[in-house]
């Protein structure tokens, strides 16, 4: 028989994970009722960034493809929503699947030529995408749609069904629902046949082919699905911030996603949440330490984090879980 799973305090590891997940969800449900509206807005943005980082994680962590251009997919998602709401009066919730679908196609199409590129070359190609996007959005040719340099202002939605929630709190819960659905889908996906194929390609493309995996198809689809996630995040971000403009989606945003990915742990799905917290709050924290040297402080914090947790939060969590397990088994 295949060896049974390890137990910890009478529960299997998946049981602990489920328990922890339920705890986090309950905390996430209660938290916005305890803090002021601006903090709720910030927490919503944490979730938005988490979804974007999760998208990057599916591509980089699970499938081993590098991207410095995910700000572009975030921008496409954000503009799709903004244009649909502002120019066509589409309800905000309906713009999400459209934005996701547009980004799925955009990501897949970008993924096709990217098949020929590996590692650093793919990084450069995606970098090109990131630096080109803000300027394309400013082009006067598209100005009628994109609003040019000015961007588009969106009206903040009210809570539906007469729910007694402020706009910020409602958007928080709306984003939370989307986040849970997308994390649940990603968790299922990575442990499925498709997920195993993606990881096999990451670890050994030659052997993956010998196992009958169509590496080209899976890699371009991984690009598409990754872009879908980041695009939905962009769409949510646009609704939450109530504004899209070309300069919100620069290369710096793409690097922020990458920072979030590495801090959270490459290839670890829940790590995206920790990455989202880092990307949202650490720059603010740095600014509180020193206004003039905020980015220098940020840099120092980043180096410290990488030094203390070389494999991101994922490795740190595994280390702590391992220590606790040993402690409990030695007490018995």
């Amino acid at each position: 028989m295949v060896a049974s799973e390890r137990r910890l305090g009478g529960l299997t590891l998946p049981a602990w994970q489920r328990l922890l997940t339920i705890g986090v969800v309950i905390a996430a449900l209660v938290l916005p009722l305890l803090v002021k509206n601006f903090t709720v807005f910030q927490l919503t943005l944490v979730m938005v960034y988490s979804i974007a980082i999760l998208g990057l994680n599916l591509l980089t962590g699970i499938n081993g493809q590098f991207s410095l251009g995910h700000s572009a997919f975030y921008a496409i998602g954000a503009y799709t929503t903004a244009i649909l709401m502002d120019r066509f009066g589409v309800p905000y919730a309906l713009t999400l699947p459209v934005a996701g679908l547009v980004c799925l196609v955009a990501g897949f199409l970008f993924g096709l030529p990217a098949l020929r590129l590996e590692g650093l070359y793919l990084a450069l190609a995606t970098f090109a995408l990131a630096v080109a996007t803000p300027q394309l959005l400013k082009l006067s040719l598209f100005e009628h749609w994109t609003g040019g340099v000015q961007g588009i202002v969106i009206v903040k939605p009210d809570a539906p069904f007469g729910l007694p929630l402020s706009q910020d709190r409602w958007l928080y819960y709306f984003t939370l629902i989307v986040l849970i659905l997308m994390f649940a889908a990603a968790t299922r996906l990575v442990s499925s046949r498709t997920g195993r194929a993606l990881k096999a390609i990451r670890d050994n493309p030659l052997a993956a082919k010998a196992m009958g995996i169509d590496t080209a198809l899976y890699k371009s689809l991984a690009f598409g699905v990754s872009a879908l996630y980041t695009g939905v995040a962009g769409s949510l971000g646009a609704i939450v911030v109530q504004f899209v403009a070309p300069d919100s989606f620069t290369f710096f945003l793409a690097v922020s996603f990458l920072v979030g990915l590495v801090v959270g742990g490459v290839g670890w799905i829940p790590g995206a949440l920790i990455g989202g917290v880092f990307v949202m709050f650490v720059p603010n924290l740095a600014e509180q330490v020193s206004k003039g040297l905020a980015w220098a402080v940020y840099g120092v914090i980043l180096i410290l984090v990488i030094y203390l947790m070389p494999t991101g939060a994922a490795g740190f969590v595994r280390l702590v879980a391992g220590r606790v397990a040993r402690l409990m088994s030695s007490n018995r």
Binding site: A185, S192, R193, T194, A197, N204, A210
Partner: peptide, 30 residues
């Protein structure tokens, strides 16, 4: 030429790729 990030069981499961059918959508929804 094993898949170094995977467990023994997961490596063996990848070997069954051609004996099963699925796509991103049905796998993500489980």
């Amino acid at each position: 030429a094993l898949f170094r990030g995977l467990t023994v069981l997961e490596n063996v499961l990848v070997g069954g790729h051609t004996r099963t059918r699925s796509d991103f959508f049905s796998d993500a929804l489980g």
